[in-house]
Design a protein around this nucleic acid. Sequence first.
DNA 1: GGTCCCTGTCATGAG
DNA 2: GCCTCATGACAGGGA
Length: 608
Amino acid sequence: MMEMEVAHSSQQDMDLIDILWNQDIDLGARREVFDYNHRQKEHELQRQRELEEEKRLHLLREQEKALLAQLQLDEETGEYIPCPPPSTPPQAAVTPLEVTQDVGFTDENDATMSFDECLQLLAETFPIEETENTSVCLDTTAVSVPSSSNVMMSPEQPALPSATLSPAPLPPPQRMSPDLEQAWMELLSLPELQQCLSMHMDEPLETLTYPLPNSPELQNPDFTFYPMASLTDGETSSLTVCPAEFMNTFDGSAPSMAPADNLSQMEAKASPLNTNFEETFCDSFYPTTILEESSSQQGLEGNEDTTSSDITKPPFTPLDLYSLSPGDAFDRGKHSLTAEMPDSDSGISSNTSPNASSPGKSVYGDGSFGYSDSEIEEMDNNPGSAESEYLEMFCLNFQPDDLQTAVTGQPQQQQDKKPKQKNTDPAEEGGHSDTPFTKDKRKKRSNVRLSRDEQRARGLKIPFTVDMIINLPVDDFNELMSKHQLNEAQLALVRDIRRRGKNKVAAQNCRKRKMENIVGLEGELDSLKEEKERLLDEKSQNIKNLKETKQQLSSLYLEVFSMLRDESGNSFSPSEYSLQQSADGTIFLVPRIKKTFIKSKDNRLSCL
DNA sequence: GGTCCCTGTCATGAG
DNA sequence: GCCTCATGACAGGGA
């Protein structure tokens, strides 16, 4: 009946679509999309494809079972050896102790069981009274990962100590029937579950290892029966490792928050598993401190039911991510932050008003948090002074970063990470890590300077980072200033920070250029010296060549002159005659007497 | 303690 | 007139 109605309405829709189609009205999609029959055909085709795929996977599974049935676990080495023909192992022993499903395990059980069915199976397998103290959960710490490879750990993410990774108390050993085991396999292969788990793990589920019910591990009282539970040390090459992204969740990475939502959705579905699921997940995903914080907050609120799902939902809103920044950390753990802050003892006056102690040139003369450098230096020598006051203003400074995000367009967690990075590698802060002539200690010092500006900005509750203040273009900076109602002290400080920051960079560039000029001039000087040497050598060579040419010319002259003869065949005396060349190239033999005569005549005339 | 070097900051001029 | 940049000068701090 309903189908007929649907078909009828679909026919009407198709008529309407045809009308619109004929009128050349853009429907936003192809016409076939609106065709019910077309969609039905596609659906049938898809189902057919799914069935074929399921058959194929089933066949593969059967083949794998047959293969595994021919193998037997060597309990000493943990390897699988061909099963001896005479003794057929029992059904439970057919399945290996630890099967690494490397081939096609992920996709082969797609349509075997629904997610709800698997959850129901879980509920039936592990009643609520048992699971309350059992880590029957999707604890990521129970996901076995090869210990030799930190597949899930990025290089920059050091593995946490194993103590921090310890999962919930292990359950007592239990046996699992082969059917249950098979159901577990199917459950693990569910796309929903895989998506939930693989969202934080690069390691796919198909590499997960899980023991079987009758395995020696299960004889171990410390061994958990749960297939995904972590194995004991040395039992296999697996290591209980919490995914790095989970372990670093508290770093403020927003994407890593996603599983919390997924988990919440899963909790709604898998109510029998909620308790341990949540606890273990929480223990794994969130640091103990955060959980303690969460629980303590609940305690403050009078909510004693710490086993409820509230614990598993740490308030990781973007705003709360920010609360994990050092500013909030100051608020929480003051004792440890004094050592962490590179310049934590500066910019703080214990009991005195800033103005009272510094009548100098502080531009922050509103009496709130104006500190000149000299004041800071004085206060540097007074560690521990007014720490609480500073801590208060420090934590007050942290405001929702939507403002920064709106201006910079950067994700909030990136902004949030900056204060953390300052603790770990302050040299990278400020964007001048590649400044010229920098050494480690110089960097340290420059960062101390930078941190002072940051502290001043925080002291005046300026809702931008120093980096933003310095590096924003003029228009963006002015827009930022106009968006926020800052008082005079704040404006003065912001402009001072910007001026100092830009001037600092300018000075660095200037010095860099100066050094480059010096180096360039030195190189130019060297090249000029080389040029001078080369020219001197060339000059001496030219003089030498000229001398040789003159000698050759004189010898040639004498040779030519000796060949000349007069009418009687006598040679001319070189002392009486000389050869001269006219402009047209004609050679004349000129008597020297005449020349000397003319010369002597000129001398007489000059004497007269 | 003096000296050198590096760096930040200020003042000033130019564009 | 304001802003940015370049640069000389000065001071602080470390080696």
